[in-house]
């Protein structure tokens, strides 16, 4: 294998080191216990250290003999819009109610595609709102109010 740096490898390793390390640091704050009676911190400490160590190995391997994985294009707009839509749903479904929340979430999500036209987006959002209301609230009796307190209900 040729020697070459691989940005994706280093990034992946970095993510593992970061998450593993964070768990290690936090778990030191919990009781570790003894082997006989392991405390709540022991197992996460062990696994967190393993994740961080494996991450470090991936970073090192990525610096000397990385797999060539080309990272490719990143759909920033889709990532931002979809994350926003999902967070919006979680935050407002209790407050705005099922129907308006679903409509806004669906509308936001359709905008993730760079080639969407406004009319299509509105039509898709409307259709999905009706469909999901029928499926989840009417059909499956999901107990979420259709209209929430923010709208004065």
């Amino acid at each position: 294998m040729e020697r070459r740096r691989s940005f994706p490898d280093v990034l992946a390793g970095g993510v593992f080191v970061l998450i593993g390390g964070a768990f290690v640091v936090r778990s030191l704050g919990y009781e570790l216990g003894t082997p006989l009676r392991m405390g709540p911190g022991a197992f996460p400490l062990l696994v967190g250290a393993t994740v961080a160590a494996l991450g470090l190995a991936i970073v090192l391997k990525g610096l000397i003999a990385g797999e060539v994985v080309s990272f490719g294009p990143v759909p920033w707009r889709a990532i931002a819009v979809i994350a926003l839509a999902v967070l919006f749903f979680g935050f407002t479904v209790r407050r705005l109610g099922f129907v308006p929340t679903s409509a806004v979430t669906a509308l936001l999500t359709t905008l993730a595609s760079s080639r969407v036209r406004l009319l299509t987006a509105v039509a898709v959002a409307a259709g999905l709102t009706v469909a999901s209301t029928l499926i989840f609230v009417v059909g499956l009796q999901l107990r979420i109010p259709l209209w929430g307190p923010w709208l004065g209900f």
Partner: peptide, 22 residues
């Protein structure tokens, strides 16, 4: 363009209905 908004919306609704936990 119809399919992926449907997946996202149903995912959000379905997951929320698990325990009504945002």
């Amino acid at each position: 363009q119809v399919l992926f908004p449907m997946i996202i919306l149903f995912a959000a609704i379905g997951t929320y209905s698990l325990g009504f936990n945002a």
